[in-house]
Amino acid sequence: MSLEEVALFSIVQAAGWPIWPLIFCSVIALALVLERLVSLRRARIAPTGLVTEVIGVCRAGIPGPEVIDKLAANSLLGKVLAAGLRQATRTNDPELLRRAFETAGRSAAHQLERYLNALATIATAAPLLGLLGTVIGMIEIFGAQAPGSNGTNPAQLAHGISVALYNTAFGLMVAIPSLMAHRYFRSRVSGLLHDMEQAADQLLHRLVHPQLAPSQPNR
């Protein structure tokens, strides 16, 4: 082990058991951040030009079930557009079409926001866990002082307090990146949802337009 690894292990040992929940939170937060980075890629959620391609296909009529199923498997935006196309094969009522898009959009929003609440909870709870660990450490330090003793060693007391503060520092080290990641992902989700809503509106407009009224599915 390197000197840095030994020093880090010594700090963890000195901080006591309250630091272990923080270590667990840091591992969970890192896993959530990596998962969201992979899952919220634009190519996986709302590929550029997909709605234009779908509208172009719809000029010849509503595509068949095989094409719609392929569209749904393309991306999350594809699922939303496919839901509207499936409804269009049954009716061209604008209200029913809008409801189909909105229902699929709510499902997509739920999927995009998955794990963000957990990340926000870690960002909120980590400083409190660190403060709890510091308080416990301070209680142990002052409780260990022998009653009736003539005095205490100031250097030893200062060292004990600094060790107790490790928990607070580590809690902030977990909370700050988690909060920044949560804000970033929240902003990214909002942008993706806006793009998906715009795409759904474009396809809805084409489906209810008199010159582009949906026909029977191709067979």
Rank of each mutant, 00 (worst) to 15 (best):
residue 5 E to T: 15
residue 9 F to D: 14
residue 10 S to G: 11
residue 14 A to K: 11
residue 20 W to T: 07
residue 20 W to A: 12
residue 23 I to D: 04
residue 26 S to A: 12
residue 38 V to S: 13
residue 41 R to S: 10
residue 43 A to E: 15
residue 46 A to G: 09
residue 48 T to G: 12
residue 50 L to D: 08
residue 51 V to T: 14
residue 54 V to M: 05
residue 61 G to V: 07
residue 62 I to T: 14
residue 64 G to S: 11
residue 74 N to T: 14
residue 78 G to T: 05
residue 82 A to C: 08
residue 82 A to V: 04
residue 90 R to Y: 04
residue 90 R to K: 12
residue 94 P to F: 06
residue 95 E to D: 11
residue 97 L to Q: 01
residue 98 R to D: 06
residue 99 R to H: 14
residue 100 A to D: 01
residue 103 T to K: 07
residue 103 T to Y: 02
residue 106 R to H: 11
residue 106 R to T: 11
residue 112 L to N: 01
residue 113 E to Y: 10
residue 115 Y to N: 14
residue 119 L to G: 02
residue 122 I to H: 01
residue 129 L to V: 08
residue 134 T to G: 01
residue 137 G to M: 06
residue 137 G to N: 05
residue 142 F to P: 03
residue 149 S to P: 00
residue 153 N to V: 05
residue 158 A to H: 10
residue 159 H to E: 14
residue 161 I to R: 05
residue 161 I to G: 03
residue 162 S to F: 06
residue 168 T to V: 06
residue 170 F to R: 02
residue 170 F to T: 01
residue 172 L to M: 15
residue 180 M to V: 13
residue 183 R to D: 07
residue 185 F to D: 02
residue 192 L to T: 00
residue 192 L to V: 03
residue 201 D to M: 08
residue 203 L to S: 03
residue 205 H to P: 00
residue 207 L to I: 10
residue 215 S to W: 08
